[in-house]
Design a protein around this nucleic acid. Structure first.
Length: 441
RNA sequence: GCCGCUAUCGUCUAGGGGACUAGGACGCCGCCCUCUCACGGCGGAAACCCGGGUUCGAAUCCCGGUAGCGGUACCA
């Protein structure tokens, strides 16, 4: 088995594209086949080195390794020219100067459901001769039988007047050349398949199997785009998601394992993925569920792994202590700093929190806490908890009325990791200094 | 317009003629846990697009309608 993923080199790897890549990869890995990368760049303008590198980088981040490529369509141009020659010589294609207007006029004469049929003019663009009778049909691995009448299809242009190939010809020839056995792509290519089948048939070759994945939509049912938040793999990465969680979530978008399992490791995904079970209707990308799933994966990370992920995300390697006390509160890597940044940067500025917790009573409590923590030994979590608990009891207050003023003094805001852990991580000097600073406000 | 694809809770889905008072997950609501926020636990509301057929029996099969999406380039 040889499958190929063929992204357009537009610079960003769209989430829908990432899912297509994932399904190709799962299929290849599950069957011990080859995963080939081909860059669709018939329109040479877009395939800049930077754009291609960004796509490859997104794939690397997702840990979808490829066995061959990237192969550039343009590098196969000689083969495309040969194919055009074969078509012309075999009488399966002809040269025509017919314009879009000519095509429209033809339809006015023969009816809207009649495809354009031209004459050989010996010059102009190269058009494939589409048969008038019969259907072009194929058994799609996802959709099932797809059948379309030949008479409704225009004689399609396969190469420009200057001989350069067009997409449908390039794809058909490349898939043949690379000996691709399974083409898995988005449903937006479904109607291209009949054209490619016609080209392959005219070339006398055998077509690969096809599987068309349902498209991905945003929360409003419209095509997924920037305005829905993250729309590309790069944005997912920047939003602090874990590759394994993204793979798990994407795999379940349009495919179900068939039972009630939701959290599936990549090994499980490979083992159980079945292209025939892929959903036929389009799915909406729901970032809330991804966040939940990412949280599950975050909590399964060891402290070492989490610290490494944070180091990679924030570019600093001193985050371990804060990671240790905040791990179960994080859904994404990006949530770490808003929650724990105060440990490194000092208390944040939150007037409402000061107003609420650092009034006269709060300050009295802080003084008592300061005195209790000042001389306590050792300065560790159990003794901190005991010391603070004693303050609660002595003053006859609810725990929160003691802990929240302290929290606001240390973090500046009413939300932080557990208070005992936070005090321990900050250390005595920093805690006493922050309490004093809060009292001096 | 024409050609094609699709249709189960708000969302992702299970369902392959009787096991369906339609199951799970996210989200939402309530309760519990609790130093905040989370995590976790328990409970709840929430769906078969509409109309015909086939059948003893339809979410499931067929047809029609409607809706959504895609394609309809000398773009990819």
């Amino acid at each position: 088995m040889r499958v190929r993923f063929a992204p357009s080199p537009t610079g960003s790897l769209h989430i829908g594209g990432a899912r297509t890549a994932l399904f190709n990869w799962l299929l290849a890995r599950g069957a011990g086949g080859r995963f080939v990368l081909r860059i669709e760049d018939t329109d040479l303008k877009r395939s800049t080195a930077e754009n291609v590198e960004q796509i490859l980088d997104a794939l690397r981040w997702l840990e979808l390794d490829w066995d061959e490529g990237p192969v550039f369509q343009s590098s196969l141009e000689e083969r495309h020219r040969e194919a055009v020659k074969t078509l012309l010589e075999g009488g399966r294609a002809y040269r025509s100067n017919a314009t879009a207007e000519d095509v429209a006029a033809f339809k006015r004469r023969h009816g809207d459901d009649r495809g354009f049929r031209g004459e050989d003019e010996g010059e102009g663009a190269i058009r494939l001769r589409v048969p008038d009778d019969g259907d072009t049909a194929f058994e799609d691995l996802v959709v099932g039988e797809v059948r379309s009448p030949n008479r409704a299809m225009d004689d399609l242009v396969v190469a420009r007047a200057d001989g350069t190939p067009l997409y449908n010809l390039a794809v058909a020839v490349d898939d043949l050349d690379l000996e691709i056995t399974h083409v898995i792509r988005g449903n937006d290519h479904l109607t291209n398949t009949a054209k490619q089948l016609l080209i392959i048939e005219a070339l006398g070759a055998t077509a690969p199997r096809y599987a068309h994945l349902p498209l991905l939509h945003g929360p409003d049912g419209k095509k997924l785009s920037k305005r829905h938040g993250a729309a590309s793999v790069q944005e997912l990465r920047a939003a602090g998601y874990l590759p394994a969680a993204v793979r798990n979530y994407l795999a379940l978008l349009g495919w179900g394992a068939g039972d009630d399992e939701t959290i599936l490791s990549t090994q499980e995904l490979i083992r159980r993925f079945d292209i025939a079970r892929v959903q036929r209707n389009p799915a909406q990308f729901d970032e809330q569920k991804l966040r939940w799933m990412n949280g599950r994966y975050m909590r399964e990370l060891s402290l070492e792994e989490l610290t490494a992920a944070l180091a990679d995300f924030y570019g600093r390697d001193d985050l371990g202590p804060a990671a240790a006390i905040s791990a179960e509160k994080l859904q994404t890597l990006a949530e770490f700093w808003p929650l724990c940044g105060f440990i490194y940067d000092g208390p944040v500025d939150d007037p409402a929190a000061r107003e609420r917790w650092l009034g006269a009573e709060g300050r009295e409590v802080l003084v008592e806490i300061r005195d209790a923590l000042a001389s306590m030994e050792p300065f560790d979590e159990p003794s901190i908890e005991a010391a603070l608990g004693a303050v609660v009891e002595r003053r006859g207050l609810k725990p929160r009325d003691v802990y929240q003023p302290l929290r606001v003094a240390l973090a500046g805001r009413p939300v932080s990791p557990g208070i005992f852990e936070t005090v321990a991580v900050l250390g005595r000097d920093a805690v006493l200094a922050r309490i004093q600073a809060a009292l001096n406000l």
